[in-house]
Amino acid sequence: MIGPTLDKIIAAMAEVQADLIETPVLPLASARWNGILPDCAGVTVKLELFQQAGSFKARGALLGMRHLDAAQRAAGVVAASGGNHALAVSWAAQAAGVDALIAMPKATDPARIAGCEAQGGTVTLHDDMAAAFAAMTAAAQDGRTLMHPFEAEHMILGSATCGYEYAVQAPHIDTFVVPIGGGGMISGMACAIKHMNPDAQIIGVEPFGADSMSQSFAAGKPVRLDQVSTIADSLGAPLAMPLTYAVAHAHVDRIVRIADREMLAAMEIYQNVLRITAEPACAASLAAILGPLRDDLAGRQVGIIACGSNISLDRYAVLMAAL
């Protein structure tokens, strides 16, 4: 089976569970959801936005930090990210006593930059994500350990702990709908869930403007996009990469795409019904079951994930003004 074994996933859970949060699952069954949800047997959401550092990324970042040797710890780590991964690496590095250099685009939400700095990360700003990745690569060549946002075994394994945890918490779920950025989350979650329930259906969700995994599935190999255009910066990976592509391709049943306006509508629903201020990526699963999947879920027990939400109120207001 491609990806981490069940024994390895369980061992990773044991290694990090004392420092992570077992994020809750919530059945969306109250009267407030009447007329909103699709006609299916039930919908459950895993509230991973309550995880350390505000997203699922903390799981993989913590595992990566735990696996550094003494020389790597002394040299420090480097990451490139516009949001959740940057915050997760800053948090995990501070907890481990490791110096973290974080390369971020200049357009990053100021609240995310401040969050990294508050957790001890040293932030450098660059023209765009490509320039931030170039700075990360240069720092790695100078001796820092590269903490890639998705293309790393520890990131897949961290996401697998989330999938395992979800499957244990809600064993009745037979259809999981998971957002895709670079593929680290869905590859790990899908692998773990398939270990627990081989008959479970795993459906990925991508924005139309950042659909590298959809295109990669169609091409049969990892694809790089010419450009990325989506409000969901946490899902804006410009390419699929070999490791995460291979694990996702082995375990994900299908991928659907959603428009930015569908994520905005789902963000508004989270705010109005659950009083959750969701970033676009956090609302992607909900947007998918209300949109392209709405007529495909009859009789299914559906699991969605609110994968993280690190967004300032100013940025949230700007986005919602476009709805």
Rank of each mutant, 00 (worst) to 15 (best):
T5F: 13
P27I: 01
G35L: 03
D39L: 02
G42Q: 00
L47E: 03
F50S: 05
F56I: 00
A61L: 14
A70F: 07
A75K: 14
G76T: 08
G83A: 09
N84F: 15
Q94I: 08
A96Q: 13
V98S: 11
L101D: 12
A103F: 06
I113Q: 10
M129S: 00
A132Q: 02
G143K: 10
M147V: 09
H148G: 04
P149E: 04
A160M: 14
T161F: 10
C162I: 14
G163A: 08
G163K: 07
G163E: 04
Y164K: 07
E165Q: 15
V168S: 01
A170N: 12
P171T: 05
I173N: 03
G184C: 07
A192Q: 05
M196E: 11
D211M: 02
Q215W: 00
A219D: 03
G220T: 00
V223D: 09
L225Q: 03
I231R: 01
S234N: 13
L235D: 04
A237K: 10
L239S: 13
M241F: 02
T244I: 02
V252G: 00
D253R: 10
A265T: 07
S285A: 12
P292W: 10
G299S: 04
G299R: 02
R300M: 05
Q301E: 10
L313N: 12
A321M: 02
